[in-house]
Nucleic acid binder design. Structure first.
Length: 498
RNA sequence: GUCCCCAUCGUCCAGAGGCCCAGGACGUGGCCCUUUCAAGGCCAAAACACGGGUUCGAAUCCCGUUGGGGACGCCA
């Protein structure tokens, strides 16, 4: 049977790179095996969920190219795909569990519970004052022991009640697809709440209910859910449903080995998109963070990743997010991106800098592509085209003062450039070969090294000390602009009072 | 504290008892190419956490220690 997997984010924030990678693994698994990738929004926490967050998450997934077969916008046989629309089913499941004796009503109030927890903590040792030491206290099952009369009396008093699952004794085992066999002793699992006293289901209840109804066969999710797994397995068994396979993916950490968070830098995929990273690079990078094809391959396209993927390749340990490597992947994918496609994707960055012109995709397309070709191997991110190649797209060039000082403000440079200007103007054809020949001839005639003339010309024409090969630059800039800039540079060197 | 997971270069991975005095990639250093900057090529430094076993033989298996992470909610 074709596997059915799901990604179930709660819309309480942006699409985090960790979540994105989990979604990626699910997607890869489904695509590899011809399965179904379901997207379900876990928006039960009404206060923290919002429409905007949902859109942000969907946008992030789309940007990465993770299309879902069932879920928001596309629908599917198991609709609705918003958890908030499935509350009745969750409640029904909880009631069923009470009827069959697998769960019971609990009339304990939050205050009572908190008091017991605190007492347990105090009893365990007054040490560590002030320190927030989570208690190991587990619900004492007092409501499980209630007699029929006691229950009737509480109901008559209209006391609010929650539903708790009655955790059976014994060991719960499962064979995790990335970690291997894992087992938990029932004695370490408390009777957890399924339905809150306000009638809302808890996470444990709703995931299982939804996963059962959506016929999920493989649950691929973050490592932090390992300890929830035995509880959920118990629920599957209690309702007589088949238990899915589990694959717990390790977490992504920051450089300090702590769970990756905003203080480590950007964590939202949308943010990376905005910073000029390519979705295929992010896709490649994320896939290799904690997963390996088993050999030395590193550079993948989406398709080759689908072909190579298997859950077995996921490693068990947490992985540190390495921004330098992301940059490298971006650069590699940038270089491999067809220039015509690159041109289209550059539009946003160019517009941001006020340098976009629709002619770049029309009559000046050939020129634009030639420029991009030159800039490509030097760019790490999309905005680098604007930053490093701005002089191609605007005649208002900013001179790097250090570059001007070292390459232009040297003895004789102004005259050399004037000679160069004259030689270039006299040229029959204006291409890399002819301009180079002309420059070298000028340098030789004036007894200066070609290199220093090249450096001076570069600064004069681009304003920077680093650029693509000077002669390619000159050719693409064209005779007129080159001339204008050489003139402007000489004006810069000897500002005349007139 | 209790339970669970993890443990190979700074980082991400390969390694599923001999092929490993441990391989690739990012980063770092050097060299080459060269008009600068990149790209590319070559080279280098850099790791099996520790201690016990098992075995003819262990990075690989077992136990323990230490270290790191996660979970312990009427959050998801």
């Amino acid at each position: 049977m074709a596997p059915r997997v799901r990604f179930a984010p709660s819309p309480t924030g942006h699409l985090h790179v960790g979540g994105a990678r989990t979604a990626l693994f699910n997607w890869l698994f489904a695509r590899r095996l011809g399965g179904v990738f379901v997207l379900r929004i876990e928006d039960t926490d009404a206060e923290r969920s919002s429409e905007d967050m949902i859109d942000g998450i969907l946008d992030g997934l789309r940007w990465l190219g993770l299309d879902w077969d069932e879920g928001p916008k596309v629908g599917g046989p198991c609709a609705p795909y918003f958890q908030s629309g499935r509350l009745d089913r969750h409640r029904a499941m909880a009631e069923q569990l009470v009827r069959q004796g697998s769960a019971y009503y609990c009339y304990c109030t939050n205050d009572t519970l908190k008091a017991k927890r605190d007492a347990a903590q105090r009893a365990r040792g007054a040490a560590a004052p002030g320190a927030s030491d989570p208690s190991a206290w587990r619900y004492d099952r007092s409501c499980c022991a209630l007699t029929a009369e006691e229950i009737i009396s509480r109901e008559r008093d209209g006391l609010p009640r929650a539903i708790r699952f009655r955790v059976p004794e014994g060991t719960t085992r499962f064979d995790d697809l990335v970690h291997g066999p894992i087992e938990f002793d029932g004695a370490n699992i408390e009777d957890f709440v399924l339905l809150r006293s306000d009638g809302h289901p808890t996470y444990q209840l709703s995931v299982v209910s939804d996963d059962v109804e959506m016929k999920i066969t493989h649950v691929v999710r973050g490592d932090d859910h390992i300890s929830n797994t035995p509880k959920q397995i118990l629920l599957y068994r209690a309702v007589g449903a088949e238990v899915p396979r589990f694959a717990h993916v390790p977490l992504i950490l920051g450089p300090d080995k702590k769970r990756l968070s905003k203080r480590h830098g950007a964590t939202s995929v949308t943010e990376y998109a905005r910073q000029g990273y390519l979705p295929e690079a992010m896709f490649n990078f994320l896939a290799l963070l904690g997963w390996s094809p088993g050999d030395d391959r590193e550079l993948f396209t989406r398709d080759s990743l689908v072909a190579a993927f298997s859950l077995e390749g996921i490693s068990g340990g947490n992985a540190v997010f390495n921004p330098e490597k992301l940059d490298w992947f971006n650069q590699q994918h940038l270089m491999r991106l067809a220039t015509g496609e690159l041109a289209v994707r550059l539009k946003t960055s160019f517009e941001g800098a006020g340098l976009w012109s629709d002619s770049y995709l029309a009559d000046r397309r050939a020129w634009f592509l030639a420029v991009l070709e030159l800039l490509k191997p030097r760019a790490k991110r999309l905005d680098d085209f604007v930053v490093q190649g701005g002089f191609f797209f605007s005649d208002t060039i900013e001179y790097d003062s250090a570059a001007v000082d070292t390459h232009l403000r040297a003895a004789g440079v102004e005259d050399h450039l004037a000679a160069l200007d004259a030689a270039l103007t006299a040229l029959e054809t204006f291409d890399p070969a002819s301009t180079e020949a002309a420059l070298r001839a000028v340098a030789e005639a004036r007894g200066v090294k070609a290199a220093s003339l090249i450096h001076a010309a570069r600064v004069a024409v681009t304003g920077r000390s680093a650029s693509p090969g000077l002669f390619e630059v000159l050719a693409l800039l064209g005779r007129a602009r080159v001339h204008a800039r050489l003139v402007a540079a000489s004006r810069l060197l000897s500002p005349s009072p007139s």
